[in-house]
Design a protein around this nucleic acid. Structure first.
Length: 329
DNA sequence: GGAATTTGACCTGG
DNA sequence: CCAGGTCAAATTCC
């Protein structure tokens, strides 16, 4: 067998798969909120569809981000309001020579999310236009990469299928031990009703004082609140890299995580269309001159501006019910 | 003044 | 050779 599929057809199929999965995930989210007694059955059906899609995708080696795109608006990288003067020749005829170990790490996780916040503090060290991709990819490394030798990295790119979401790929693991980079789980919260997730967010307002950051934080939080509003939040206990043990899960569970996150993200997307829209615009057309502050009018605003923005894992981490993801055997 | 970001150049794997 | 990943100087922001 092994009929060789034309590359473009394969890509198109992959794209379709991704979209189908997104749709199914959204549908699933919707069903979760449904108050119909047939909902569970429908959910089961959708789960089945998702599962099939996942296996099909893994068979085709399709990740969360369907490559394939077309022309590229090409991110208006231009450093926002002040725009950089220029650099002309790099100083004197200085032949930069450096050597660095080429990427050798394997991706450890890929998520689709609509916020760049993940509880860690990242420092952006590069951005690159990617072939076949409409959006540039941003490269981040843990802020403690130099200080504590933490080698965690991540790549962030806008989703092809839904530009208001980000495809975040994590590499390496966090070896740093800084309070600001360790996800805080605020899960007990005593008597707080689960449908009020406000207690899942904790800001450390010491210093976050830039406009862009502030507004960004605002929308992030509202998103989380929105997500918390539904039971899906319970399933969002994602694979935070706590320390030594990273998310070395099987591809299978990866898919599941991704699906569920997709589902939850879908909800958030619905509830916070305003933000999604503006963010998309910001990147696409209005291009950065709008938000002066922050200093990053280009692609994904770095979360660093948020200083100590700590996001707790949504949902019940401590519970045994995260077997949904079966992250650990 | 220090920290973070931007961005062109450099380097490497496929 | 090309695309993608990283470096590091310049610049901006707080």
């Amino acid at each position: 067998m092994s009929t060789t599929l034309p590359a473009e057809r394969a890509a198109a199929a992959a794209n379709d798969l991704v979209e189908a999965r997104d749709g199914a995930a959204t549908l699933r989210t919707f069903l979760l909120q449904l108050d119909d007694r047939r909902a569970p059955w429908a959910q089961g059906v959708v789960d089945g569809v998702l599962s099939r899609l996942s296996s099909a995708m893994s068979a085709l080696d399709v990740g969360g981000a369907a490559a394939e795109g077309g022309q590229s608006p090409a991110a208006g990288s231009g450093s926002g309001g002040a725009s950089r003067p220029q650099q002309s020749a790099s100083s004197s005829g200085n032949t930069k020579k450096r050597s660095f170990s080429r990427r050798s790490q394997r991706p450890s996780d890929t998520k689709i999310t609509d916020t760049l916040e993940d509880g860690h503090v990242w420092r952006k060290y590069g951005q690159k236009e990617i072939q076949n991709s409409s959006y540039p990819r941003s490269y981040y490394r843990c802020t403690h990469s130099s200080g504590q030798g933490c080698n965690a990295k991540r790549q962030v790119q806008s989703s092809e299928t839904d530009p208001s979401k980000y495809v975040v790929t994590y590499y390496g693991e966090h070896t740093c031990r800084d309070p600001s980079t360790i996800p805080v789980v605020v899960h007990d919260a005593g008597a707080a009703a689960p449908d009020r997730a406000s207690n899942l967010i904790s800001f450390g307002p010491n210093g976050a004082s830039n406009n862009a950051a502030a507004s960004a934080g605002a929308y992030s939080s509202s998103q989380y609140l929105a997500m918390g509003g539904s039971t899906t939040a319970d399933q969002l206990s994602t694979s935070w890299c706590t320390s030594d043990d990273m998310f070395s899960s099987s591809a299978g569970s990866f898919m599941q995580v991704e699906e569920l996150i997709g589902a939850v993200v879908g909800t958030a997307g619905v509830t916070s269309t305003a933000m999604a829209g503006s963010s998309a615009l910001d990147r696409g057309g209005l291009g950065g001159m709008a938000s002066s502050g922050g200093g990053n009018a280009s692609f994904p605003p770095s979360p660093n501006g948020l200083s100590r923005f700590v996001v707790g894992s949504l949902g019940s981490i401590g519970g045994d019910d995260d077997d949904l993801f079966s992250m650990e055997p």
